[in-house]
Write a protein that binds this DNA or RNA. Structure first.
Length: 208
DNA sequence: TGCGTGATATTCT
DNA sequence: GAATATCACGCAG
């Protein structure tokens, strides 16, 4: 798959399993267009979700509700939800239609529209914190539930672009287990795989 | 280190 | 219908 830098991702770029998509998204450019202005950032931290995790205890197999509906849509659908009374989290749907798998975007390295980000993220101590966290990046890019269900393969308001040598020579893509549980007995149920560009100052938490 | 915050899903009467 | 438990976080202190 050779794609031109700056080209918007098409369906085939999204249509893969969530682990592959998480890796593929790392280093790609997430673009938000508002009133013709671009606000964007390079994905530096992603996490693959194999199945819906709404309740920790119960395996949430194939429940389908109005809120989770976008998760069952075609790959490339944006799934945004609101949590903790004040934060939005953005996911990119992967897999097949009717297969509820997705990739959570956890952190970006800001590229374009720094001014807009700073305005929205008033209080961010440093630019590296503008998009360091799932709630923060949504805030910085002005992403909310209105964008849930958007088809990013076609949308001109929210999409992903191919970036040039995204990782760069010094930044390596590393896989880390979910916070805390590193190493041995990783429960099959929580195979949440987090991918980070090691060395990026924009991560929600540094990679050791 | 705690705690606010509000939508959602589940569990009641 | 109504009540309550839960949540993949961020920030004040």
């Amino acid at each position: 798959m050779s794609a031109a830098v700056g080209e918007q991702w098409g369906r085939s770029d999204y249509a893969t399993d969530p682990v592959t998509l998480a890796k593929r998204l790392s280093g790609a450019l997430l673009v938000r267009v508002e009133r013709g202005r671009r606000v964007s950032g390079i994905n530096v931290e992603t996490e693959a979700y194999l199945g819906v995790r709404v309740r920790a205890a119960h395996s949430f197999g194939g429940r389908r509700t109005a809120r989770t509906e976008p998760m069952y849509g075609p790959a490339g659908t944006a799934y945004v939800y609101f949590t903790y009374g004040m934060h939005h989290c953005m996911n990119v749907v992967a897999g097949e239609v009717d297969e509820p798998v997705a990739v959570l975007l956890r952190a970006l390295a800001p590229e374009e529209g720094l001014g807009a980000m700073r305005r929205r993220r008033e209080g961010a101590a440093r630019d590296t914190l503008l998009c360091a966290g799932p709630g923060r990046l949504c805030r910085a890019l002005g992403i909310d539930r209105a964008l849930s269900g958007v088809d990013m393969a076609r949308s001109s308001a929210l999409f992903v672009e191919h970036a040039r040598d995204p990782a760069g020579p010094t930044l390596r893509l590393v896989r880390t287990a979910r916070i805390g549980v590193e190493g041995a007995g990783q429960p099959a149920a929580s195979r949440l795989l987090r991918w980070c560009l090691r060395g990026s100052p924009h991560l929600s938490r540094p990679v050791r």
